[in-house]
C-alpha cells in the first residue's frame, strides 16, 4: 500500500529545510517514480513556499523527475572512469535491448534509461544502478541477463 503525500507531510515540521527529504519520500511512493504537479502543490502549501521555488529545487537535482518514469530506473555511470572503461558500449546495448534512448521510458512502463555521474563504484569495468541496486563489473553480456531477469521478474509478479 502506497503512502499518501498528506501522511508524508505530517511526519515533518513545516520547515523549508525538510523539502528535499519530503520530495524524496513522495517520489518513492509514486508508482511512476516522479513528482506530479498535484503533489508538489501540496508541498508548496504545507511548507508555505511558492510553487516556483519548489519547482526550482525539483528541477535542480538530477534524482528528481517531473516526468513519469518506469518501474526500473537504470542509471548508467558516465563518469570519466566508467566512460574510459567502455560505458558507451553498455549504453548502446541498453538502447538496443530496450529500444529507447536515454531519458526515455519503455512503452510498457517498465524501464527508464538515465545517465548518472560517478556512483562511487569505480573498478576496471563500468557500473550502474537499477533503482536502489548497484551493479558493477558490467559487460554487454551481463547487461542482457540483468534486463531479461527484471523483465521476467516483473511478468511473474503481475501473474
Amino acid at each position: 500500500m502506497k503512502i499518501m503525500t498528506e501522511e508524508i507531510l505530517l511526519k515533518y515540521k513545516p520547515q523549508k529545510n525538510n523539502l528535499l527529504q519530503i520530495l524524496h519520500e513522495i517520489q518513492t511512493e509514486q508508482p511512476h517514480q516522479y513528482l506530479p504537479e498535484t503533489e508538489l502543490r501540496k508541498v508548496s502549501k504545507y511548507l508555505n513556499i511558492s510553487m516556483s521555488s519548489v519547482y526550482g529545487v525539483v528541477s535542480y537535482y538530477t534524482m528528481f523527475s517531473i516526468k513519469p518514469r518506469g518501474k526500473f530506473i537504470v542509471r548508467l555511470c558516465q563518469s570519466p572512469v566508467c566512460d574510459m572503461l567502455g560505458s558507451q558500449l553498455i549504453a548502446n546495448k541498453l538502447k538496443e535491448l530496450l529500444q529507447i534512448d536515454f531519458n526515455e521510458t519503455t512503452s510498457d512502463g517498465l524501464f527508464t534509461l538515465e545517465f548518472s555521474e560517478c556512483l562511487g563504484l569505480c573498478a576496471n569495468k563500468p557500473s550502474m544502478m537499477i533503482n536502489k541496486q548497484a551493479y558493477t563489473g558490467l559487460n554487454v553480456d551481463v547487461i542482457e541477463l540483468i534486463i531479461n531477469d527484471l523483465r521476467n521478474e516483473s511478468k511473474n509478479s503481475d501473474n
Binding site: Q15, N17, L20, H24, V57, Y60, Y61, T62, M63
Partner: peptide
C-alpha cells in the same frame, strides 16, 4: 539526503542544500 548534485559537496553549497 542529497539528490544528485556534485556541487553540493562544496561546503557552502552543501549548506544551501541542507536549508532546502
Amino acid at each position: 539526503i542529497g539528490a544528485g548534485s556534485y556541487l553540493c559537496g562544496e561546503e557552502l553549497t552543501l549548506l544551501e542544500s541542507i536549508e532546502g
